[in-house]
Amino acid sequence: MKNILLTGGAGFIGRWVAKRLLDDGNSVWILDDLSNGQEANLTEFMSNPRLKQFIHGDIKDESLLEQLFSLTRFDICYHLGASINVQDSIDDPRTTFYNDTIGTFFLMEQCRKHHVKVVFMSTCMVYDRCTDETGITEQHPIKPASPYAGAKIAAENMVLSYYHAYGLPVVVIRPFNTYGPFQKTGGEGGVVAIFIHNKLAGKDLNIYGEGTQTRDLLYVEDCAHFVVEAGYSDQVDGHIVNAGLGRDISVNDLALLIVGDPSKIKHVEHIHPQSEIQKLLGNSAKAKQLLGWEPQVSLEEGIRLTEEWIKANLLSEKAVK
């Protein structure tokens, strides 16, 4: 039963992390500027007495952070708040750098002053392409192919420096491509959610480039379990830890798995080919060893669960109209 600060808790993954933390009996404060998240994602938790406060605010607001940390003795800060869109980071690198790197620094300073453990959400997009079937371990070469990846790498190093310089308990986590219910189905959403939405809407599934690029797709509840456990355990303090399904699939094969009709699949010009990672396959052996974590939901089951949720969401949207 801990006091938890969760940044980005109104976002897609953040919403599931909030659910897990609340289900575990923790007291949770959520800070989100709603640039990516939606307060509606938290509707089912608003009557939960363990959700102490939702703060609509910015991690770059130092006075707000000082007030939050002075009012509550937090045990853990799960830092998920970030600019997350690769294309946006290419078009506007300043916003991504300020949110993901400078914002993280401001938060780290408060956690240092109040000795609060930090779980920093990074991304698999910091890695160079996978070269073999054993998958990408934490020792794999990194490659900042986009300002988003560059900002995350900078923030990772800042976070880890607080472990080495101050003895602050921190862990950097790198989940692979996460999908599932509550993910956006439009331009900022993930490939699974967008493909399923287009299928249900009778639209074509558009693939950037040749579609031979592969992704390791992690179901969101498995991801949330991993994120939460990284905060509970001191075995990962000072570490970088991956989480993935351990299976990759080409975007072409993913589209066919979802829609089942090759005629509904179209290839379009890639909008950011320079930041594409051709093969992403995660190796989560370290997470299993240190946290006892393994994914529980197969890709096929995760797609089924996600489609059920999106279908219900589409029906409710039509009912409102």
Rank of each mutant, 00 (worst) to 15 (best):
K318M: 13
E308G: 04
M1C: 09
D234N: 15
Y127N: 06
A193N: 15
Y162G: 01
S89R: 01
K113T: 01
T178N: 12
G135N: 08
P273E: 06
Q53H: 08
C77W: 02
Y232R: 14
T214P: 04
E317D: 09
Q38R: 13
S284H: 06
S161D: 10
G282D: 01
G150S: 10
K2D: 09
M1I: 11
H270C: 12
V259G: 11
K279Q: 14
I4G: 08
I59V: 13
A243K: 01
A193M: 10
I277F: 05
D222C: 05
N85R: 01
Y148R: 10
G211R: 05
T101M: 02
A165I: 07
R247I: 13
N26D: 10
F182M: 15
I153M: 12
L68R: 06
V126C: 07
G231R: 06
I55Y: 03
I142N: 09
L290Y: 14
I207V: 09
I76S: 04
K19H: 01
Q67G: 13
T306H: 00
P181N: 12
A10G: 05
D237K: 04
V172T: 09
C77P: 00
L22N: 00
R112N: 10
K52R: 11
F176H: 06
A201E: 11
G186Q: 08
I153C: 07
S316N: 14
H115T: 11
L71S: 15
S35I: 07
L290I: 13
G202W: 03
S284R: 07
G167F: 01
I173C: 13
T185N: 08
T134L: 14
S83D: 04
F195C: 09
G57F: 10
V17A: 06
I173V: 14
L200M: 02
A18C: 15
R20Y: 01
I142H: 12
T134Y: 12
G103R: 00
V126L: 12
K52P: 04
F69T: 04
K321N: 14
S83F: 05
H140S: 14
K321V: 01
P93G: 00
M121I: 08
E221C: 09
R129C: 07
E66C: 08
T43K: 13
N48C: 09
F195Q: 03
T96P: 02
P262S: 04
L107D: 01
F69N: 07
V192H: 02
S47G: 11
L290D: 06
A224T: 04
L34F: 04
Q296D: 04
S89I: 11
N242K: 10
E294Q: 14
G11R: 02
H225N: 12
P141V: 11
